[in-house]
Design a protein around this nucleic acid. Structure first.
Lengths: 355, 355
DNA sequence: ACGTTATAGCCAAAGGATTGCACAACCCGC
DNA sequence: GCGGGTTGTGCAATCCTTTGGCTATAACGT
């Protein structure tokens, strides 16, 4: 295993150029090179002569010098990376929030190091450890447990962090106003005359799902039409979960006339279930989703849903994190949601449907 | 700025425990601690006594020692991280592939460091630099330009890399058999009697889009019904792109009777366009997508599409990367696709449609 | 012409983990 | 009881950058 034999092209095996390489070639000391390349315009006015600076930059470019972030991180005690934990990237909601996070972080000179926790406790814990090992300066936690149980270790570690998408207790977090969104969905269905409704309630330990369900159910209860407990079924957030849940709710003889899904993907799964049973969304059974993901409006029967500003939520979480890193107190931020009425909802059919 | 003032709980300001901390407390030398904690079961069998090992592990646990990956990476010349560049995570295809990558990488003890390039040249280049700076051991490139122009720098750098999702020339890559998939879509539509078809062709510089379009068009040409060039419109891969493209194709007086979209999202966008024009998918206009993302089968009119094993592609790319890192030659892998016929395709209507 | 002050650049010490080498103690056999 | 072979540990160099301290030179004022 002598030669490195990777890229066929260049000087394979020749290790990356370091400060020393540049210093030698340019005829300066590494410290000078470092200062030039870092543009240390800071206090001591430790600037190099412009001649030196130019020469050094020239050489650096020639040898393709890329600073070793590891070494730099070791010396200054910061990596410029923030860790991001998400349940899974194929959840469009998570992905969109993440895009917001990445963009905002980049704007402030931070890299993001993402990991998928798969909503699994052990993996979640391992993520935190790994991210800490890689020296992230802070953490954005996208899949906290509603009871905050996963966060105590984190808090003890002293690593600054904020929650996003799923809140938990008083921990600093940025989410949609999930409860309010649930209420909006409920009010809409109530206004359409629906009385017997079901909820595809999402994961029972996810703060956002809980709040959405709560807002929805309490609104129906206040209107004098409490949601039957057996009509609130836990699901995953994806379409498969929505489908299974809807199957269960609709196959029962006295199915509900409307469904509220705590995610658009689950709502689409419910649409699949409806279709299989020959039911038409918006006419036979109404369906309301959550988030308003981009395809919602393009469906052949466009989805009524509660819009949440996902990307903004991601961006805001970075701002909040930065504040927390500065030692500021850290707040609980909730973005208002907006009901988007399309065609999967319609007036309630006669109290008892056939079939 | 004396106290650190982050986590309120624990010993804030107390820096992370290091090897030295553990060594002192356990009464051993840091080198011994290092060996124990790394389980250096390697060749020299220079193991520590089990007494020492136990004590050391005990102490490490007590003080919550987390190794500093930066420092370790500096010393051994590897970080255990592979960089991943994707156009954007909200593209479900990219996200799914990434999930495969992450999982497979983790299985082999690697972390992934993802970045979104937004399909922008400058950003793409910056991603590579940043990933190199962070010392990734290798790179998985998910948004190569078809002409390979973005890859020469990379090749020169000597960093091992493979392409995924979008191939380019003879560079090692893992993709679906995009051309074959395009053919399958075409054969299906031909069999249904469609002669006048349009293509939502994706980004003109993306290898996968190009190949899918090519496979499709060549099959129609071979059948004696070449696709009119003005009916092949470039689009983005998302639903907005598909919608705009379909609007353009269908608004022309003599619209095609079928559309092939190089992504499911674009296909769904096309469905939106159809709906707006009062056209029924599968009856008035047939639509074929690509990838078979999970919701495809749950749509109210389920989507006919060409299935590609996205997650597997991601996983395989890691395997290939590992091989390349070992100095093996690096191949071009293409996974076969499978046509999934659902309900957005049907027999071609009379040669000229009304309206 | 000499003292004073910038300026440009070098020196060397971290920072935390890994690892080849050296060393001491111990075991065994004869 | 001593040589040869293990075995468990310690020593110290090394990876690359950053940065406070320091020196030498140049510039400037009177």
């Amino acid at each position: 295993m002598t030669a490195v034999g990777q890229g066929k092209g260049g000087r394979a095996g020749a290790r990356r150029a370091t400060l020393a390489t540049v210093a030698d070639l340019a005829g300066y000391h590494v410290s000078t090179v470092s200062r030039v390349l870092n543009g240390t315009t800071v206090p001591g006015a430790r600037s190099a002569s412009s001649a030196a600076a130019e020469r050094i930059r020239q050489v650096a470019r020639e040898v393709g010098y890329v600073p070793n972030a590891q070494a730099a991180a070791l010396r200054r005690q910061r990596t410029g990376m923030v860790g991001v934990i998400m349940a899974r990237m194929t959840d469009t909601v998570a992905a969109t929030i993440y895009e917001g996070v990445e963009r905002a972080a980049a704007e402030h000179g931070y890299q993001t190091l993402v990991m998928n926790s798969w909503d699994d406790d052990e993996t979640r814990a391992r993520c935190v450890d790994l991210l800490m090992a890689h020296g992230v300066d802070a953490l954005i936690h996208g899949d906290a447990l509603a009871d905050g149980s996963s966060l105590q270790v984190l808090e003890r570690s002293g690593l600054p962090f904020v929650l996003v998408n799923r809140g938990a207790g008083a921990y600093p977090s940025v989410t949609a106003d999930d409860r309010g969104g649930g209420r909006q969905a409920a009010e809409h269905l109530l206004a359409l005359g629906h009385r017997e409704v079901g909820v595809l309630a999402g994961l029972p330990y996810a703060g956002n799902a809980i709040e959405r369900t709560r807002g929805f159910c309490e609104t129906f209860a206040e209107a004098g039409h409490p949601v039957r407990p057996d009509r609130v079924v836990p699901t995953t957030f994806d379409s498969a979960g929505g489908r299974t849940g809807a199957d269960r709710l609709l196959r029962a003889g006295d199915g509900p006339t409307a469904l509220f899904a705590v995610s658009d993907a689950a709502a689409i799964g419910a649409l699949g279930s409806l279709r299989d049973q020959g039911l038409h969304p918006g006419r036979d059974v109404s369906v309301v989703g959550f988030n308003d993901m981009p395809i919602a409006g393009d469906l052949t029967v466009p989805l009524t849903t509660v819009r949440s500003p996902m990307r903004e939520i991601g961006e805001r979480s970075v701002a909040l994190l930065l504040a927390v890193m500065e030692g500021e107190p850290g707040e609980v931020v909730r973005f208002p949601t907006e009901l988007v009425v399309r065609e999967t909802t319609g007036p309630a059919p006669g109290l008892t449907r056939g079939r």
